[in-house]
Design a protein around this nucleic acid. Sequence first.
DNA 1: CCATATCACTTTGTAATGTAAAGTATTTGA
DNA 2: TCAAATACTTTACATTACAAAGTGATATGG
Lengths: 110, 110
Amino acid sequence: MNHPTDQSFCPVYEAINVLQEKWTLHIIRSLLDGPKGFNELSRAVGGCNPATLAQRVEKLEAINIVSKTIHSTMPPRTSYALTESGQALQKVIEAIDDWGRQYLPEPVAG
Amino acid sequence: MNHPTDQSFCPVYEAINVLQEKWTLHIIRSLLDGPKGFNELSRAVGGCNPATLAQRVEKLEAINIVSKTIHSTMPPRTSYALTESGQALQKVIEAIDDWGRQYLPEPVAG
DNA sequence: CCATATCACTTTGTAATGTAAAGTATTTGA
DNA sequence: TCAAATACTTTACATTACAAAGTGATATGG
């Protein structure tokens, strides 16, 4: 909803608003190595509770970053994958990866 | 605190944890075009309330992404700038910028 | 010379968001 | 038949972010 004062639509600003939501980048990173089911994704993401994860993938589906495919309702079998837009975020994840390796200190072992 | 199941320390994972916090990327982006005072930064970021902003820059200072310089206490004059580590995040912001321009639709007027 | 603005925040109370824990309905494997 | 897994939802609680107002001091304008 917010945007810089001097401009009515700023793509970077909006992009940041999308990506700064908790778990979003983790979800995208997890899906970069292939489609996953809900619990599988949950395990890959690590630490996100199902209520939040469900809400987040729904949002990501709405803005066309993730696509959801229901293979069967009973037994339940769903898969989440990145769309073209989602795949394009690999560049962002790579940049974050590079930065992390260079600037985040490995915690010293006790 | 969280980390992938198969590894004890993952730089990407930690980096994402840092960058996914609300306003963090906005703050970094704002500081990329030079140091700013508190209210100046607040205006550049756009929409973040001072309590949150104060807390966020304090955290970013603690992990050495932002540096705070107090020029005078009275009248109050402070400036926030990016450290080397913070400057290095320009690559991340650029990647987000590219993605936003390509994949975020401009809202239709009217 | 008094009101107003600005600086860098802090405080207070409330709204939004995220959390753990448990539950649902069904199938598969031991 | 019991435990585990699938994909979630529900509930009650905790954390986080929010708007609005306030603080103390100085500089500016009428």
